[in-house]
Design a protein around this nucleic acid. Structure first.
Lengths: 232, 232
DNA sequence: ACTCCTAGAGAGCAGTGATCTCGATATAGA
DNA sequence: TCTATATCGAGATCACTGCTCTCTAGGAGT
């Protein structure tokens, strides 16, 4: 793994990781606005200016944390789905969403970093949008498998507003030519719905209604599984 | 309106409003993290310490902006619904959601303040949760009217996870004893869905899929109207 | 006319992100 | 093995922030 890397390079990579870890630790306590380069440096026993050898500025550190978070969330979903037999399509759907929600609950501040309001000065490098896509691709994979196995209940045809049909067609052509517009629309809808629910839960909007919201979340997962045509 | 208020009180109220307006102006440009009391004071031609006569600290100013935002969003929804004849239930549903989305698009930073990640040091005073409820209450009103007029298609009975049924019953008892669990679950679900969609749109998560997302949003509104049983 | 109280000014403190310079040192090439 | 180079971290510094304190001018209420 480390073959061909000089001691310096390894040290640099390690320290970079330590900086991010310490930053994550601070994030866990106070949230992104309170993340202070100086405090991170202090905790690591160095001086703040040294930190600029590793990250050009505060935003760059935050961006690194953001892409890491996308990666972690994507990995959690992929792993969860991988543990379920490929032919249990609905269970895979469930596994993916529960993994996403569990990860979010376990890392609320990192979740807020990626699905909360964008931090000031965010530039969404191409890096992050690829990482962000992973979770949707996992779900899409589940649906494609289900479709290929002929285990997807066909969806009723729906009237789609003008521009939407074209947007869906473009996505279909790029990602899953065998699927229908209706299914794709429902996938996007489910994706929106569940991240909406996770956000509402974590950001406190369910306080006073369905809080704690584990059961409501489970209800949504089943409901949306039905809507995309996954058989019980 | 101003009867019985001394000149001093009026001046104070006016300046308070000016401070909030200037703060909103800065919010529009840079986001909440960049909101600076000193900059606000500077722009208003006073010194920063004077500002503390009006707001105890930065968080208190932000909290004021948050409750204002909830109020504005709630008012926008109420007005939109009020312009539609009471018997056009589905149109009222549409009007409410379109008003919410339009307001969010017109005030993205204020939207982020209330539906993005909670700002550090948020304490969600009781004030805000009442204001936050207004929009849901508008929707609930639309559904109650529809139900009272017998114009709501009955919903299929659904199996609800253990705790959820109890939570829904409590809400039903408090807000609308005549409605069914299924309808309430769908209302919460629609609420989640549409704010999820607004957030995804504003925070850039639809880039590369359904962006611009006006049509997708319209699709969701119709879909959810169907799901809560509003007849076309 | 007298007090009282409030709004605002100004100085100051501790903390922040960021930049620059300057030695120390590990690396790489001869 | 010796040396030139690139990297790293320290320290000082700048402009900025939120916030507190003290002080004064002047309007409000008696």
């Amino acid at each position: 793994m480390n073959a061909g890397r000089t001691a310096r390079e390894r040290a640099r990579a390690e320290l970079t990781e330590e900086i991010k870890n310490e930053a994550r630790r601070q994030l866990r306590i106070e949230g992104p606005a309170a993340l202070s380069l100086r405090a991170v440096a202090r905790e690591l026993g160095m001086v703040s200016s040294a930190l600029y050898r590793y990250f050009r500025n505060r935003d760059e550190l935050l961006t690194a944390l953001i892409t890491d978070a996308y990666r972690a969330l994507g990995a959690a979903a992929e792993q969860a789905v991988a543990t379920v037999p490929a032919e249990d399509h609905r269970d895979r759907w469930r596994a993916c969403w529960h993994a996403a929600r569990d990860w979010a609950v376990a890392h609320p501040h990192e979740y807020a970093l990626i699905y909360g309001s964008p931090v000031p000065g965010y530039h969404a490098p191409g890096d992050t949008i690829a990482a962000a896509r992973r979770l949707v691709l996992v779900l899409l994979g589940v649906l494609r498998d289900g479709h290929a196995a002929g285990r997807l209940r066909p969806l009723a045809r729906v009237k789609l507003p003008g521009g939407l049909a074209g947007q869906l067609d473009a996505l279909i052509a790029e990602f899953a030519p065998e699927l229908s517009r209706e299914l794709f629309a429902r996938l996007l809808s489910a994706w929106t719905q569940l991240f909406g629910a996770i956000s509402f839960e974590l950001f406190g909007h369910y306080v006073g209604s369905v809080d704690p919201s584990a059961d409501f979340f489970a209800y949504l997962i089943e409901d949306l599984a039905d809507q995309v045509g996954l058989p019980a």
